[in-house]
Each structure stands twice: as C-alpha cells, then as structure tokens.
Design a protein around this nucleic acid. Structure first.
Lengths: 251, 251
DNA sequence: CGTCGCTTTGAGCCATATCAATACGCGTGG
DNA sequence: CCACGCGTATTGATATGGCTCAAAGCGACG
C-alpha cells in the first residue's frame, strides 16, 4: 500500500500527464476512485513519439492495445479493391484508435502518423482484467464505444447525403472544435494531411477538394496557404455544413 | 439453487428460444457457463410482438435497454434539419438496436417496426451488473460494440465512395446474407421498407432507387414486383457492389 | 368506384468526376 | 547557390451520374 504522501505525488504526476494528454474528460472516467486511476495509469504505456509516416500498426496486425492520441494526428485507412488507399478516419488528440479491432482480434485497417505524434498505449487484455473489478471503468469503456458508434453514424449520414462543400466545411469545423477544446486557436491551424487524404476520407475527387478551398477563400470563409488554414467565418462554415451532428442535438 | 432436472429443462427452453431468435452466435457468448447463460436469460425480457409502424422507442427517450431483433425488422432514423426522416439503419434478426444510446443515456434516434417484429429487451443496468462477475459476458459486449463500429465504418466507406448502383446492390446482398444465415432463401424475399426509406438510407433520391430496380431487372440481375424481390444473379450483384466489406477481408 | 399514398417513368439540369495541363515547393546533386 | 526533378496542388475543359420537377400508373382500402 502506498503512504498518503506518495499517493499525492503519484496523483500529481498522473494529473499532469493526463492534462497534457487532454484526455482527462474522455479516457479517465471522473467517477473513478484514486486507487482505480492509479491502477489504470500503471498499465498505460507512454510510447516514444512517432514521426510522420510511421506506422502505429498495419492492417492485419494482431490487436493488443488501444491507443489514445495525445498530440499530433493519425490517419487510419484500408485499401480499396483497386489497391488505392481509402482513408477511414483522422484521429486527433483526445481520440481513441483501435476500437474497431476488438471483434476480430486484429486490425482491420492501418494507422500511420500524419506528423510527429505521441500516443498512450493501453494493453487491452489488462484493461479488461482490471475493468472487471472497477465497475466505473467498464461503464466508461462501453460509453466510449457507444460514442464512437454515434460519431460514425453521424459521419455516415453526411457522407451519404451532404454536398461536397458541406462535407469539407464539417471536417474543418471538427478540427476547429478539437483545437478549441484543447485551448488552441480554433481558427488558425495546420492541416497535417494531404489533399488526397482529405478527398479520400470525404469521398470526393482531389480536384474537388482543391477547388472548394479556393472557392471558400474567394467567399471570405477562410484563408488557405498550402497546409495552413485560417477560418474567417465560423458561422458561415456552420451554415454550409448544415446543422451538423443532428444525432447529438435531440437528447 | 435449481435441481439438475429443472436446469436441463430451463436450458432446453432457452436453447430453443435462442435458436428461434437466431442470435445464438451473436448475443449468447458460447464460452459462457450454463449458470451464466441462465442468469443472462433471467434478465432478458421477451416482449410481445410489435406491429408495423409501432415505436420501439422514440428519439430522446431515456435509454434503459438494448434490443435484439428476433424476427421482423426495425428501422432507426433521425430528423434532418428540414424535418424529414433520415433513416440511419435497418435492423434485421440477429442484430442489436440501441448501442448508440449508451453514451448520452438517451436514444439519439427513433426506432419503429417495419413489419410484425419481435425483440428481446435486455435491461442495460442489469446487464452491466451481471457482466461484472461474468468476464466472458463483458468481453462479448465489447466485441459486439466493436463489430458495430466496424460495420458502420464499412457502411461509411461505401456511402462516401460508391455509385448508386453499388449502394443498392450492397444493401440487397446484406439482406440476402442475413436470410442465408437464418436458413431462409437468400435469393427470394420481401423488402419490408418503402422505396423512400431505402433512398433515405442510401443517400439517394427515391426516383433513382426506383430506376435502379427497373434497370437491374432489365439486366437480368433480379426480378422485382413491389416489395417482393428475387435475386437472379448474386455474382453479378457482388461485382456491382464492389468487393464489399473490404474491412473484414484483411484479417 | 374514387381517393390516397406509393412507385414508376420522362425530360432537363447541375454538381461533381474525369482527363489534361500547368504551377508550385521542396529536396537533391551538381 | 542554382538547376533539376518529383510529388503535390491548382486550374481548365468536358462528360456524366444522379437530382429535381412534373406527370402518370398502380394497389390498397374505404
């Protein structure tokens, strides 16, 4: 058993780590007792940062751990029938990667860093073990997965229905919100992914994405210079994106 | 404690119920011990059948239970900004409904029966309770949710990328597979949903869906008469749908 | 037998894909 | 330090798939 003093010290270190990680409201269930948080922290492995292009895992790799993005960004993708990359998601700080691998026991998609990126590795077996005696953790896990399902459903809807401009606007706003939550500028940031990646993710042609950026710029919605964007009219973008995330608003 | 005899009887009843329900490989983890299965069965509530148009739950209803479709079919939907229905999913026997409600604690979409439909109701609180002392159950729950995420991702991809004909073909094949698994004819069945529902779900115009059916028929891929379809060329449909479910094939 | 809702069919148009060419930025080697 | 070359991004011209609007067909049900 830890003495009160060391417990305080440990907790401080932990708090800092997870503040920094900006996952504190997400991956750390606030209801958990101190001992439980410590136990959780003990199994989480902080990896050395990935560099641009590094694989977090490859398609078909055995599933051993979930990953929480702490900083940077990750893209996940599969291959289409014709062998091209099909981007299935962009994962920003505070988001989990690998939830889709639990069922089959291996990763159905590959994950690569889009820039210098650090992640927490959460060994799944051990997470399952400790969650059997920490009810709050189990519940939190289910909630996280449910949230993921909700998000995917949401995405599905706008991919199915919305116009190209709505899709791009929605994506930019998603980035913006993530930055805001992490106390970075919600209006000025760099896109870590290529136009091709964006196009693939949004189900559009690269040319369309490019044209949209130029058009948005002409319309005064944003300024864009290669990877760097500055959103000048969030309200306008929201209007274009449609009252996004319809699913969340009715509860 | 039950005597050996009654246990056997109970199990038989249960097996039958779940054979019929065709969820045995899905919602009943095979690794579970008999006692565990019995405990699970005890909390599952078999409702009286719903009729066409009946609500299973409405948007915003508090989340109390997951539902497993035993027979019939359910559609889930939200409302778009303009107040029209946006179908988010069709749920066939063996599939779960409500997984997206766990996070928020209330249903982000409504669910209605498309035909006479029976479901099992699985009170979530109690499921969580018993899964704390049945590790296999917990794991199975996570797997189920992971599978759901995978499926949604899959759907997302073809909604984003694929042509109208590929979407419709993929949907028909999904129905076909479900019927095959349940030992019904995989080539001849009734569509329980309207053309409008199909269109909404696939992100297409009703007219397009209608035209596609006629075209498929002319091309000898299927025969269609109102709700009744007969798939005549599964291979052809698969070709059109694209090697669907790319995500599952790489593990 | 008429009405109503759902489905099909037709005609024209628009958004986005496709094809093709050019521009830009960045790293490399001379 | 410059010139080259390659990958990425932009821009233009054209084609087309799917949407929209409009109307007619068909079934179910009172």
């Amino acid at each position: 058993m830890a003495s009160p003093d060391t417990r305080i010290v440990d907790l401080k270190k932990l708090q800092l780590a997870c503040e920094e990680c900006s996952l504190h409201e997400l991956c750390l269930p606030l209801e958990l007792q101190h001992e439980d948080i410590e136990e959780l922290d003990r199994i989480i492995h902080k990896r050395r940062p990935l560099h641009r292009g590094d694989y977090l895992f490859r398609m078909g790799d055995p599933f051993r751990a979930l990953f929480a993005v702490r900083s940077g960004s990750i893209k996940t993708y599969t291959n289409t029938d014709e062998g091209e990359e099909q981007v299935t998601g962009f994962h920003l700080p505070g988001e989990l990667v690998g939830l889709d691998a639990i069922t089959e026991g291996c990763h159905p998609c590959a994950a690569r860093a889009l820039e210098t990126t650090s992640v927490c590795e959460i060994p799944f077996e051990r997470l399952e073990e400790i969650s059997t005696h920490i009810p709050g953790l189990q519940r939190q896990l289910l909630r996280l997965m449910s949230r993921e399902i909700l998000t995917e459903q949401d995405t599905m809807i706008w991919l199915g229905k919305k116009s190209a401009e709505a899709r791009l606007a929605a994506l930019l706003l998603r980035f913006s919100d993530n930055y805001r939550r992490r106390h970075f500028s919600p209006t000025e940031f760099n896109l870590s992914m290529s136009r091709t990646d964006i196009a693939s993710y949004l189900g559009l042609a690269v040319e369309t994405v490019s044209r949209l950026f130029t058009r948005f710029q002409h319309e005064g919605l944003l300024e864009v210079e290669r990877k760097h964007v500055r959103l000048r009219d969030l309200e306008g973008l929201r209007r274009i994106a449609g009252v996004e995330s319809c699913l969340h608003n009715h509860c």
